[in-house]
Design a protein around this nucleic acid. Structure first.
Lengths: 164, 164
DNA sequence: TCAATAATGTACAAGGTTGAACAAATTGAC
DNA sequence: GTCAATTTGTTCAACCTTGTACATTATTGA
């Protein structure tokens, strides 16, 4: 025989293992892409309200948790304090939120939605819900819950391991 | 009877349905958070190579698909052309890539990794793979593949529906 | 009580991302 | 062949995000 099995095998198994061939790698890349597309679509949709994703996140969180401090909010959104210091004054000037000092701790500013802010938040959440529904309707509820499960485990693991 | 069944029911069903109570909404929020944490951890890890996530994406894609044009690359990464026009000259100055004009179409610039770029890409991909593995090891391979499946369907649906 | 330490919010510089306007090159229709 | 429409890459201004340094206020411990 000119080419026996021992000759051929190494050529196959020696082929470099590229990251993009790993199932976990591929899986995560898909997640990243989905997120990116999602954010772009969401950004386009809420542009009709003249806000962007970061403002949406702020509105939703203040709608849900009134009286948060800037630090609390930054932690919830996983961004830096300085980020809040840039965005919140804008939104205050625009009449969407108010910042009131706390009497017990004069370092902190507590955040509240104004009437306009609350109304805008509701409109924005309606849009957001519609986009998410449109997106996730390609999956069963069972799949959605499985995805949520995986993501929560994974986030917890990473946060525990690598601090914030 | 003072309170019959018809009285009680409305009080239950009339409670406002908040977006964050919808399984699909919650699921998606979990995905977004996971992505955010992941990118932050990845950014910290590859900072040792003095690059940031966007540079990593570029390196990996050029490693895999040599001779892409700037437009091709931008489309793959789902970013604007102008973004590439800002980042690529930096990377060229740094000696990681070369940009050569195409003789058949003198508008386009084709992109190639240099030796340094290729070496850096390999180091970066190693780090990226390690981070992803660490993150996804909280899930079974089966779950990973299910997640990938959901994400791909969802991305396709959104891209088809809302253009790029 | 008083000093060291920590927490909160701000200011600023640096850098990534975008969209619009632009020049150069290609394509297609007539 | 010629002119309009399209494609590619660049420039620019605007905005978001980050990290660092800073001032102010709380908390802790001698």
């Amino acid at each position: 025989m000119i080419g026996n099995k021992e000759d051929a095998r190494p050529l196959m198994t020696a082929t470099r293992q590229f990251p993009w061939d790993h199932p976990r790698f591929k899986s995560w890349i898909a997640v990243g892409r989905a997120c990116q597309v999602m954010n772009q679509v969401l950004a386009r949709e809420i542009a009709t309200l003249d806000i962007k994703p970061p403002h949406l996140d702020i509105l939703v969180n203040l709608y849900r948790f009134e009286g948060l401090t800037q630090q609390d909010l930054a932690r919830k959104l996983l961004v830096g304090r300085s980020n809040m210091s840039m965005l919140l004054p804008q939104m205050e000037k625009r009449g969407l939120i108010t910042r009131r000092g706390d009497d017990n701790d004069r370092r902190v500013l507590r955040l509240y939605l104004t009437e306009d802010g609350r109304a805008l938040a509701e409109k924005a959440m309606e849009i957001q819900t519609k986009v998410i529904d449109r997106m996730m309707e390609t999956s069963t509820l069972e799949e959605c819950m499985s995805v949520a499960n995986v993501m929560e485990r994974l986030t917890a693991a990473l946060l525990l391991r690598d601090g914030r």
